[in-house]
Write a protein that binds this DNA or RNA. Sequence first.
DNA 1: AAGAATGCCAACCGCCAGAGG
DNA 2: TCCTCTGGCGGTTGGCATTCT
Length: 281
Amino acid sequence: MVRAPCCEKTGLKRGPWAQEEDDILIDYITKHGHGSWRSLPKHAGLLRCGKSCRLRWTNYLRPDIKRGPFTPEEEKLVIQLHAILGNRWAAIAAQLPGRTDNEIKNLWNTHLRKRLTSMGIDPQTHEPFYLEGSSKRLPASPSTRHMAQWESARLEAEARLSMESLSSWLLKSPNKVTNTDYFLRVWNSEVGESFRKGKPVCFSPASHATATSSTTTEMGTKLEHEPDSGFSCVTMKDDHITFSPGVTNPSSPGEMEDSSDTVLQLFFNFNGHNDMSFLED
DNA sequence: AAGAATGCCAACCGCCAGAGG
DNA sequence: TCCTCTGGCGGTTGGCATTCT
């Protein structure tokens, strides 16, 4: 089965938008709303496909878009969020009012990624990168090592600060937080790190939630299977969530191989916030 | 001064998930 | 249950601007 193209290609304009096209699009959406993007260009009198109109509007013409260079605070936030969310530009953009996913993606690809790399930080893992073949895996050069250590310490401190605002962030963004988002956050946090090391963990950002490690054989309803994120089973019950690391993605080889019966349980006792519906998609 | 290399970013492409028939 | 449509997303590209040689 071949997917039909999003629009009739012939006779439609492509490439950069002219000022008059922008004016037509703004005028139409201001008066009528965008409605169906597919039919918009026809109604507005534009020789563009609906997808092109939507992109132009959401990435450039929307009135709430903040133009201009990113502030150091915004750049810092992008780095922090990328460490947690990875290349999920839309999720990152949702935390930066007025910025689009495209803009953030460009910022990352043209500036931030290079900056981290030049500091000896792996832009994907946000950890110092190492020389290949070295048993101790030291960063490339003394000066790079120094910068990497400094940046690593800084990121660690920022991560701690992020932890403190985790629950308020969750509660502030009820529609954007999915189960996977939440578990990835926990998994990439100090809680997840302790858990991967087999230590009991206690998680209480702003006293909203606690977690302990325990052993269980009863898994309840399976909600997720996330091999890349390092946990293989997630269960949700009335007042707690359980996830099991299984054998995937241990922090060091062999570390979690016998841990399929070990699970991390998050017991929620939201003070005055018992509604957990924000954890549902 | 001019051609080459690099940087930047708007726009495009293809894939995916959800909604609805 | 299947199929199609639609909007959203992340990756990639094309072309202009700037810097380098």
